[in-house]
Write a protein that binds this DNA or RNA. Structure first.
Lengths: 161, 161
DNA sequence: TCTGAAACGGACTGAGCCGTCCGGTTACAG
DNA sequence: CTGTAACCGGACGGCTCAGTCCGTTTCAGA
């Protein structure tokens, strides 16, 4: 790939991350292109549709989640591991409107499987140690993540077993 | 007002309530008109802009909230009063996508003042009785309402003082 | 029944957006 | 330095949607 092409691609992805995070999925491709300093034709050459561009951005964000989840599994205290990831995930959702608005799209991305596996293990460990309430499934608990963006402590207090 | 005009107005408002609740604020005026069984010209004769139509729908929903809040103030147990309204409000948000997507618009509507006043009183009473945590303001607590649509019990557990 | 005012609805306009395409430009190998 | 393949960006088409307008229909009082 030519050097200028690579540079523009990086700019486009960076701009798309910022735009979608701040403005949600309804931000126009023109806005992304403007912020990247390229014409919007250049965006469509790299990403055949707006949806493909969004997938790239969501994928990057989910990659971060994978790291967070695996880091939490290393923590030996079951509650600290669970709560740490819960807080971090909530923060990620708080900082990214597109993530909140694209829940079902994220389900289609491969990284989501890894995140869910780790998250389920975090919940299993915490429930086994009786530090996390057991009347909710792991899936139900993580439905609360977007909700916890503002006051995670309150929700964690409610979840503690 | 002519009888047919009144009938069509009622139909439009009803259809708009359903459409916005189910599909959020991005539902088109044409969709609303179709569901109401009128041309979209008729909608724009009653409501000069789409925003005005949305305001009418939000206003109706807030009227319901006013009744719920005032009903909760009659309840003598401070926790039951607070929690009852909190649950009811969360349910209202869960059943209405437009309400979630129009938080700042709601702030402009007169009914919101009444709801907030009652809600603050509910919080004050519950905090005075030491059944509600005191490290959050009333405003902060009610930011959790939309979040509580799925598992209100978890959030209420977290809020209990 | 007749009549005029009110209401209706669909055609129309203009703006914004996604995605395509092509003429001009630029990087880079030889 | 130069030829060329890759790259760029803006013009363009097609679509959807908000809001306007006017010819036609309907209501209701006399």
């Amino acid at each position: 790939m030519r050097a200028d092409a690579q540079r523009n691609l990086d700019r486009v992805i960076g701009a798309a991350c910022e735009c979608f995070a701040e403005g949600g999925v309804d931000v126009s491709v023109d806005d992304v292109a403007r912020r990247a300093g390229v014409g919007h034709g250049t965006v469509f050459r790299r990403f055949p549709t707006k949806e493909a561009l969004l997938d790239a951005v969501l994928g990057k964000e989910l990659d971060r989640m994978v790291l967070l989840a695996q880091g939490a599994l290393v923590e030996e205290d079951p509650w600290d591991g669970f709560a740490g990831f819960f807080r971090a995930a909530a923060d990620g959702y708080a900082r990214n409107r597109a993530l909140v608005e694209s829940k079902e799209r994220c389900q289609e991305l491969p990284q989501m499987l890894v995140v869910q596996e780790s998250a389920h293990e975090l919940v299993r460990r915490a429930q086994k140690a009786h530090v996390l309430r057991r009347d909710l499934t792991a899936d139900e608990i993580f439905e609360l993540v977007p909700a916890a963006s503002r006051f995670p402590d309150v929700i964690l207090d409610g979840l503690r077993g």
